[in-house]
Amino acid sequence: MRALLEVILLALQLYVYLIVASAILSWLVAFNVVNTRNDFVRSIWSFLDAVTEPVLRPIRRLLPNLGGVDISPIILILLIIFIQKLIVDYLLPVAF
């Protein structure tokens, strides 16, 4: 049981890294630092979008319009940190 919880914690941490990478890439594309016509950038962009967008979309629907500022990645990261904290504090000590 403990090994499964450790894998879940690792997967959640990896997902946080993917969210941060997606946010950074979106800034780089918005400021024309990287070009989405490049095949490598487009493949990374589509991968990150496919992985993060299904989870971020419901959060964006619940949030009010903030005028071009998207705080849904921050809210998702905070939610993941909360879940990790719950696992570490309440499930890991019980799992032998």
Score class of each variant (00 low, 15 high):
residue 2 R to Q: 15
residue 2 R to H: 10
residue 5 L to Q: 11
residue 5 L to C: 01
residue 5 L to Y: 11
residue 6 E to H: 15
residue 7 V to S: 15
residue 7 V to A: 06
residue 8 I to E: 06
residue 10 L to G: 10
residue 12 L to V: 10
residue 13 Q to S: 15
residue 14 L to T: 13
residue 16 V to L: 10
residue 16 V to I: 15
residue 16 V to K: 15
residue 19 I to Q: 01
residue 19 I to C: 12
residue 20 V to G: 08
residue 22 S to M: 02
residue 28 L to K: 01
residue 29 V to D: 00
residue 31 F to T: 14
residue 33 V to N: 03
residue 35 N to Y: 14
residue 36 T to M: 15
residue 40 F to L: 08
residue 41 V to T: 03
residue 44 I to N: 06
residue 44 I to M: 14
residue 45 W to K: 10
residue 46 S to H: 03
residue 47 F to P: 06
residue 48 L to E: 11
residue 48 L to S: 05
residue 49 D to Q: 10
residue 50 A to E: 08
residue 52 T to N: 14
residue 53 E to T: 13
residue 57 R to G: 01
residue 58 P to D: 04
residue 58 P to E: 04
residue 59 I to N: 08
residue 60 R to E: 07
residue 61 R to I: 07
residue 61 R to V: 14
residue 62 L to D: 06
residue 63 L to V: 00
residue 64 P to Q: 09
residue 65 N to R: 01
residue 65 N to W: 01
residue 66 L to V: 06
residue 67 G to I: 07
residue 68 G to Y: 09
residue 69 V to P: 02
residue 70 D to H: 04
residue 70 D to V: 02
residue 71 I to T: 06
residue 71 I to W: 12
residue 72 S to Y: 07
residue 73 P to S: 05
residue 75 I to E: 03
residue 76 L to I: 02
residue 77 I to L: 04
residue 79 L to D: 09
residue 79 L to F: 08
residue 80 I to Y: 03
residue 82 F to W: 00
residue 82 F to P: 01
residue 83 I to V: 12
residue 89 D to F: 14
residue 90 Y to I: 02
residue 91 L to M: 15
residue 91 L to Y: 12
residue 93 P to K: 13
residue 93 P to W: 08
residue 94 V to H: 03
residue 95 A to F: 09
residue 96 F to Y: 09
residue 96 F to T: 08
residue 96 F to L: 12
residue 96 F to C: 08
residue 96 F to E: 14
